[in-house]
């Protein structure tokens, strides 16, 4: 007997698929923009004949890809530049709130034009929460793929770390980073913040053909995710994640468990990248609206809702065994009485 595969995946997975798509688009932008930048340098030099064969290849690929909308690539293609740490869209500058926090600490001054560049990320985080981590952060893409490697390793009995630490550790890392920036007068938070590192290192490797020291740090975090704890850096150490969590503490959009349809299957707890406990309605400020738990829920009990607070623990799901046993036992008691 062959089970019939549905034509389309169930709708609950769409958000998670969309999230992966956005992550991939952001990541490929971080690869494409430096490539375009290198092409722009070649174009600005007007020296095609002097390029090495590999450089000519890059030129020959990018030139037809951009020629249909620009005659002056050296100037026009400057319109979009940057990374998720700080970027430039047609003259509008947008930066990570952590960059602003670090800069305020290091400079001991408020430089308003720069503060405004973080306005949109801050407003979005206040409303939707730690959305940057799951939907945009280029490091998340690599960390999640690394996590797939981790589960593969676990399946073949290879050692993986299962350490449980305090989730609040990252707020201390944020504090230490800000204090370090304050003391040294230099924006050092950028040095241990994976999204900034990934954007920077991708640029280095494409434009300067070599990784910088950030790559070493990033590799260490990847190893940490494998051998210390699942998603250990994001969960326990990421200063930016800490800042986004704080901003998203009273967010409007939250995931809520519908106790009537929940069947206690625990799939949400297993899939949660951040080790949260959706089964016991424990989302809190650590939840970053990844929507992986929504995608995996077989009874569609998890949904996005508009609410500034989480619901307290609602007891076991009504479709689960625990609830049925409890119910039948209470009924027996009632009948006996």
């Amino acid at each position: 007997m062959t089970s019939k595969k549905p034509l389309l995946p169930p709708p609950r997975t769409f958000l998670n698929r969309l999230r992966w798509m956005v992550l991939c688009v952001v990541f490929s932008m971080l690869v494409l923009l430096p490539v375009v930048g290198v092409y722009q340098n070649y174009a600005a030099a007007h020296a095609y004949d002097f390029l090495a064969p590999s450089e000519k290849l890059l030129y020959d690929i990018v030139e037809p890809a951009t020629a249909w909308f620009t005659n002056d690539p050296a100037t026009d293609l400057d319109a979009i530049k940057g990374t998720t740490w700080s970027a430039n869209f047609f003259g509008y500058k947008i930066s990570d709130p952590l960059a602003v926090a670090g800069q305020i600490a290091a400079g001991k001054e408020l430089y308003w034009p720069f503060l405004f560049t973080a306005l949109i990320p801050i407003i979005v985080s206040l409303l939707i929460g730690r959305i940057f981590c799951g939907w945009i952060c280029p490091a998340t893409l690599i960390y999640e793929l690394n996590d797939k490697l981790r589960s593969w390793m676990a399946r073949y009995q290879l050692p993986v770390g299962e350490l449980k630490l305090n989730l609040r550790l990252k707020y201390w890392v944020l504090l230490v980073g800000v204090i370090l920036s304050f003391i040294t007068g230099s924006v050092l938070v950028a040095a241990f913040y994976p999204p900034a590192i990934v954007g920077r290192e991708l640029y280095y490797v494409i434009a300067f053909s070599g990784f910088g020291v950030g790559a070493v740090f990033f590799l260490l975090t990847l190893l940490g995710d494998l051998f210390v704890a699942k998603r250990s850096f994001c969960r326990y150490l990421c200063p930016g994640g800490a800042l986004y969590s704080l901003l998203g503490r009273y967010r409007l959009v939250r995931i809520k468990r519908n106790v009537e349809t929940c069947n206690d299957c625990k799939k949400c707890n297993q899939v949660c990248q951040f080790g949260l406990d959706p089964l016991r309605d424990d989302f809190g400020q650590e939840c970053n609206n990844y929507s992986t738990c929504i995608a995996v829920c077989p009874s569609d009990a998890l949904q996005f809702t508009l609410n500034t607070h989480d619901t307290p623990y609602q007891r076991p799901g009504h479709r689960g065994r625990q609830y049925r046993q409890h119910k039948s036992s209470t009924e027996k008691k009632r009948q006996a009485a």
């Binding site: 007068g185 900034a196 640029y203």
Partner: peptide
């Protein structure tokens, strides 16, 4: 002041036409 302002975004490097 430069060190306290610069957030190491690398955009100056990316935009430099002379590399």
């Amino acid at each position: 002041v430069f060190l306290s302002r610069c957030i190491r975004c690398g955009q100056c490097s990316a935009i430099c036409p002379n590399d």
